[in-house]
């Protein structure tokens, strides 16, 4: 191992760097392919692979100001979103369960997953010293109102609300994951390695996105499409979500 390292050092000194640079993307390509699987195991393999290549490329690039701002706003908006989701389910549960007791396990399952996501982002925000959104009280009131209002309108309306929210959130997580993967790709093309921290973040985002999309499926299974008028409800809620995402990324 140490002999390969000294060989690498020699190559770098003796000016054969271009070959090394040229090979770098090929070395890293398998990692990327592993990462595109959602399973935790895939991510773990990718981490092992990157750990093996540590010897050759110990260099990590400092995050630029734009990248740090992107990560801050991403974590901030995710925390705000999960807070809102938790509150929506909290407010929906009593009227819904009152009218349709058979939905109790489903509501509890969805609430527990959202509460888990909120914990994840709360700890990430505290760990990475990201400012929480200043509109926190506004989102709390609006989300509670939205959840309670749709639940009072009936089961279909509540499910349509879930459908609309989870559609927007799923798209939003996908955009974040795509942006992060492009960041990784650029680093790898330049010959830098990606830290475990950000790889784990992508893994977390993937897991959470899949769970959110699972909620979307549950909502559609439970007659979300039968809400009257479906297009108006989902249209308004989705526009509201986009507005909230836009604002939370900034404020």
């Amino acid at each position: 191992m140490s002999s390969t390292r000294s060989l690498m050092r020699f190559m770098r000194r003796s000016g054969q760097l271009p070959v090394h640079d040229f090979l770098a993307p090929a070395l890293f390509a398998p990692n990327r392919r592993c990462l595109s699987s959602t399973a935790q195991k895939g991510a773990a393999q990718a981490q092992d692979a990157s750990a093996n290549s540590n010897a050759q490329k110990p260099k990590r690039k400092p995050l630029t100001k734009e990248q740090r701002e992107f990560l801050s706003s991403a974590l901030r908006v995710n925390q705000a979103g999960e807070l809102a989701a938790t509150l929506i389910y909290t407010a929906q549960t009593p009227p819904m369960v009152n009218a349709h007791p058979h939905l109790r396990p489903l509501m509890r399952h969805m609430y527990e997953q959202e509460a888990g996501h909120l914990d994840t982002f709360n700890s990430l925000i505290a760990k990475h010293r990201v400012r929480p959104t200043a509109l926190y009280p506004v989102w709390s009131v609006l989300a509670t109102g939205l959840g309670w209002g749709t639940a009072v309108l009936g089961r279909e309306a509540a499910m349509a609300c879930t459908e609309a929210v989870e559609t927007e959130i799923g798209t939003h997580y996908n955009e974040q994951i795509r942006a992060l993967l492009e960041m990784f790709q650029q680093w790898e093309a330049e010959g830098y390695e990606v830290g475990d921290e950000l790889r784990e973040l992508v893994g977390t985002l993937r897991r959470i996105r899949d769970e959110e999309l699972e909620h979307l499926d549950h909502a559609v299974e439970h007659d979300a499409r039968k809400a009257e008028p479906h297009w108006l409800l989902t249209g308004v809620i989705r526009a509201g979500c986009r507005g909230a995402i836009w604002a939370s990324e900034r404020i």
């Binding site: 990590r60 701002e69 801050s72 974590l75 921290e197 950000l198």
Partner: peptide, 18 residues
């Protein structure tokens, strides 16, 4: 240029500091 940014941005533990 970093003078007027908002107080806090993402703090990374495994990338070198800016």
């Amino acid at each position: 240029s970093s003078r007027f940014v908002l107080p806090r941005t993402y703090h990374s533990y495994d990338h070198p500091p800016p």
